[in-house]
């Protein structure tokens, strides 16, 4: 008998009974209907499936849901309800960071991870912070500028 796997998802206690080796990515999308977490490469190269686990950036395509037992997961759906998340998302919209949008949830989560450790990052630090996230549309400059904008507008939030 497979045990229930309990964890915190976007500040709510949740439980799921499934194969512990099922990817967290598939659990988030299929079982919890959180489609903001995207799958692109499926092998940890692109960052589209990024979420925060206990406040740290991870790619959910490489994590079996069994490894999430007792942990706190924050997806883009949870993040966008917070002041910090709203600030980043608005800065992305105002800064023209978004073209097709597929990489953006991962970029926003990576930006939150970066800003929570370094509230005033330099351009190089921002580029390093999103180094694991691939965008095939905009060429990164507008994303980098938008993260800079978020860090200025969000003074005191991080």
């Amino acid at each position: 008998m497979i045990d229930e796997i309990r964890f915190t998802l976007n500040n709510s206690e949740v439980a799921i009974t499934c194969d512990p080796l099922k990817r967290l990515l598939d659990v988030l999308r299929e079982d919890f209907g959180l489609f903001g977490t995207k799958e692109a490469c499926g092998e940890g190269e692109c960052g589209a499936c990024s979420v925060l686990m206990n406040g740290r950036l991870i790619t959910t395509c490489m994590v079996p849901v069994g490894a999430v037992k007792g942990k706190e997961i924050m997806t883009i759906e949870g993040l966008r309800e917070t002041e910090r998340g709203k600030t980043i998302i608005e800065a992305f919209a105002d800064g023209g960071a978004v073209q097709c949008g597929f990489c953006i949830p991962g970029m926003v989560v990576a930006a939150e991870s970066l800003l929570s450790r370094n509230a005033k990052p330099t351009e190089d630090e921002i580029r390093l912070g999103i180094a694991g996230n691939l965008c095939r549309c905009t060429g990164y400059d507008l994303i980098v500028e938008s993260i800079k904008l978020a860090s200025e507008r969000g003074e005191g939030l991080w």
Binding site: M62, A67, K69
Partner: peptide
């Protein structure tokens, strides 16, 4: 299986399909 960054990729089977391992696995990351 610790971080999973090698094994989960090596044994993945695509979107929505649980990775298949040819041996029993224990998740030791916690």
């Amino acid at each position: 299986l610790a971080g999973g960054t090698d094994l989960m990729v090596m044994h993945r089977r695509g979107t929505g399909v649980v990775p298949s391992f040819p041996w029993p696995v224990m998740i030791i990351s916690s």
